[in-house]
Amino acid sequence: MKKLIMPGDILLSRPIRIEHTIVENGKTYATVLGVFDDEKTSFIPLEGLWYPRPNETVIGIIEESKLNVYTVNLNAPYKGIIISKYARDPIVNGDVVEAYVKELDKTGTVVLTRPRVLHGGKVLYIKPAKIPRIIGSNNTMAMQLSAGTKSSVAVGMNGMIWLHGGDTDLATEAIFKITREAHISGLTDRIGKMLGASSAEAQPSPEAHREA
């Protein structure tokens, strides 16, 4: 059975080691909102912060460059850094970059490698807990997003998503729909319908909003 769990709720009356939980007095408690599947003993957070892991993709914005180091804003409790000798493209403050986590060092700084500057476009910030649904299993959702909107999409595990070209409004709308409905089954189909319906129209008009 799947069940909505709130922080502080007991998951199991025995200690287990899964993410986003704590063990107190031999029992396991959730520390964030999520869905617990007691058959699979899996806990999927609905809200939560990002904890960097090696080789993960992140999107960030260059904040500062000095002493051969670029500082990257990852919209997270960790600052990112890129050693400038690893940067192939010229990088300036304000650039949006895609990069990979090398490690989280002891000072809470995320060391990044293989930066790629993403020119133009816009960056969305969503809650990192929703990112796995944006990507989908085997990258299906991200591919569907990009095919249905003709936008280039780069997804960072830190909750930042870069969009460029095509129908970025539709892509934005679809991403926010995913974040709102991440926990309701049949999501891939609903998003497919949303993107399919729009791309079938001649010259899609993304402005379906009211005016004053």
Binding site: I61, G94, V96, H119, G120, G121, K122, V123, L124, Y125, I126, K127, H164, T168, D169, T172, F176, T179, P206, E207, H209, E211
Partner: peptide, 26 residues
Amino acid sequence: MHVSTITEEYIRDRLLRGLREGRKGL
């Protein structure tokens, strides 16, 4: 938390086409 950062280039390109976030027209 649903916010976004956009680049000036992005905004310029969109305004040329009369597009804005969540509405029609300049």
